[in-house]
Each structure stands twice: as structure tokens, then as C-alpha cells.
């Protein structure tokens, strides 16, 4: 069993993951990280305020960062306006 910790940073603060999670492969870690980011983005968008300046750092039990995801890279935004 290998525990990985998902810490959420926003440039000023860090929300530490106190529990960690047992994941078997880098692929599972990448998938879980993407799901985490998208879940928060989708929930925030329902409240009308999305924060893409978060970053998720996944650390192993020794504290080594094994994966990182900027929220900006978790979704693609198609911007623009329909002309009046």
C-alpha cells in the first residue's frame, strides 16, 4: 500500500491532505488528480466563481512531489463572445 497526498495550493495558502490515498500507478494518480481539479472547477462554476489559479501537488509518503497539476491545465476554455 502506497499512500499519496493531494495538497491544494493557491499561491498563498496550502490546504494539506491529512489522510492520503492508496493508488497503484502513476496513471491512477494522474487520473485522480484531473478528477479532483475538474470536480472543484465544476462546483465553483455553479457558484459563478471559478479559480483556475489553484495547483494540486501530489506527494508520496516521503514528501516527494510525484505529480503536479495546474488547474489551468485541467480544462480547456473556449473563450470569446458572440458579436452583438
Amino acid at each position: 500500500m502506497t499512500l499519496y497526498y493531494f495538497h491544494l495550493r493557491d499561491g498563498e495558502d496550502i490546504l494539506l491532505d491529512p489522510e492520503g490515498r492508496d493508488l497503484g500507478s502513476m496513471e491512477a494518480i494522474r487520473e485522480a488528480t484531473l478528477r479532483e481539479a475538474r470536480s472543484i472547477i465544476s462546483s465553483d462554476s455553479l457558484e459563478g466563481k471559478v479559480k483556475l489559479s489553484y495547483r494540486l501537488d501530489v506527494e508520496d509518503e516521503s514528501g516527494k512531489v510525484v505529480h503536479r497539476l495546474q488547474f489551468e491545465d485541467a480544462v480547456s476554455l473556449q473563450r470569446g463572445r458572440v458579436p452583438e
Partner: peptide, 9 residues
């Protein structure tokens, strides 16, 4: 129906 980091936050 959430994810762990979302629960933590």
C-alpha cells in the same frame, strides 16, 4: 458525489 480534495476544502 464529490472528490477527496473537494471534501477537504
Amino acid at each position: 458525489g464529490l472528490t477527496s480534495v473537494h471534501v477537504n476544502r
